[in-house]
Structure formats: C-alpha cells, structure tokens
Design a protein around this nucleic acid. Structure first.
Lengths: 132, 132
DNA sequence: CGGCATCCGCCCAGATACTG
DNA sequence: CAGTATCTGGGCGGATGCCG
C-alpha cells in the first residue's frame, strides 16, 4: 500500500508516480532513457536532420538515435518531416508539447553542469572510506 | 565535432552535455536510472527505513533498491544511518545536495502527472496511423 | 542520406537462498 | 530488519550489411 499519496492510479483520483500501475510511470521511464533528454533538449533550438543529430550528440549509435526519435515522435514530442530530395532529407522538430517537456528537463542538465564537481568529490570520499 | 557548444569537456571551458567525455554525462546517466528519481523525491519529506521504501515504491525489488540507495549514498545525495537496535534499523535521509537535485527533478514528475494524457492520445493516434 | 534487418555479446534485473 | 551472494535469462545496445 502506498501511504504518501493514497490515490490509486485507476480512475477518479490524482495520479501517483509511486504506484507501479500509474501511467505517469511510462513517462518517467521514457525520461529515464539514456538519450531522450539529450535529443529533446538539442531540438529546442530548431529542426535538425538525422545525421546532424548523430554527429552532434556524441556517442549515440544510429540505431539508438532512430529508436529514440521514433519513440519521441510516437509520444507527440517531436515531428518527422521527410523532404523528397535526392538523396532524401529528413528533419526532426520539437512540438509545443515537446517544448514544455524540454523546458522541464533543461534545469536537469544545468544541475549536472553546476554540481557534478560536488558529486565527484563525494564519490572520491566514499571510495576512500571503503578502501580504508 | 560539436557545434551547439564548442566548449570541450576537458578543462578550461564550460561543460557540454553533448560531449560523451563530459563528466556531466555521468550525472545524466544517474538521473536516467529508472528508480533514482522515485527514491530521491520520496526521501524529500524525511528519513525512511529500507523496508518502508521497499513497500511504498511500488514495483522495486530489494536488489534494485539496495543498489540505488548505495549509488545515491556514494554520490552524496543521501545518507545512511544504522541504528543498533534488535533487529537493526537503517534510515536513509536526503542531504542538502540531494535536496537541490530533488527540487530540480520534482517538476518532472509534475509534468508527467499533468501531460501523460496528451502523450497517451498522441501514442494512440500514431498507432492508428501506422495500422491504417 | 536516412534508415531497417539481422546477428550477437554482455550486462541488468529478477528470483531464490542465506546471513548478521 | 536489512541486506549480500549466486544463478539465470531476457533484453539492450553495438556492429555489420543492405535498401529506397
């Protein structure tokens, strides 16, 4: 039983992320994807083509990029536009809904940039304590 | 080459999450963990014991909970306090650093609770379009 | 250029059993 | 109560090859 928020996911009450059957868990799992955050925030500045994304998001494979993009498109967070040139050009753009999410997760990357030093120091201290 | 932010991770310039070698990626990967967000936000309201967390965070296994807690402790985001009772009691509490992160990711769960309906509708529309 | 299909290794997560 | 230890399989993600 969930104490913190007694509301059940199935129906009339408020959704509860701590309930495994709550649909908000799906969203959380999506955000918990390794690449979703990076791809979505990258598209904030304007439409980008597939290979441009591939090059600029360092470390992503074409398979994972394609997978992530398809998922984001399915969620209505980005759009996919194929332009019939030779060779074909495909542009990905963020949707208004996607932008609300991007705005929400942006502070996250800022937190990472601001505090990663503190975290690293904590880790080193922890590791020393374990070793000693 | 990264265009969006020319700064390299190694040294004098600003960190760049789009660079695979950037230490902020480590933070992002941590946040991208399935359970980190839930555990950390849950501890915002005060210290909680192991089995209490296990019961209240629906769907988590004891293995994953232990793993997540150890990781969070190592990152300096939570503390672990063992009280020598019989049987032993262990309380986990959020640190000031952890609280800054919890405050940062909280809007995320709120986004999920607010917009999951829009996402579900988008998914259904997408799936219909694929089927038809 | 922008993918998809296939194969495959490896790690992650669940289940189970045991301990202080 | 609060974990650790071990085994196991399913899936994730990388590499490669092919196509419109």
């Amino acid at each position: 039983m969930v104490i913190k928020n007694a509301a059940k996911a199935d129906g009339q009450n408020r959704p509860n992320v701590y309930d495994a059957n709550c649909p908000t868990r799906v969203i959380l799992d999506r955000i918990a994807d390794k690449w979703t955050v990076l791809v979505l925030t990258f598209l904030e500045d304007g439409p980008v083509r597939f290979n441009a994304l591939r090059r600029q998001i360092d470390g992503i494979s074409q398979k994972m990029l394609a997978q992530t993009l398809r998922q984001l498109e399915r969620d209505g967070l980005i759009t996919r536009t194929a332009i019939a040139t030779v060779p074909v050009t495909v542009e990905y753009a963020i949707t208004p809904l996607g932008r609300t999410l991007a705005d929400t997760i942006k502070p996250l990357t800022e937190w990472a940039e601001h505090y990663f030093g503190d975290v690293q120091r904590a880790q080193q201290q922890y590791d020393r304590a374990q070793a000693g």
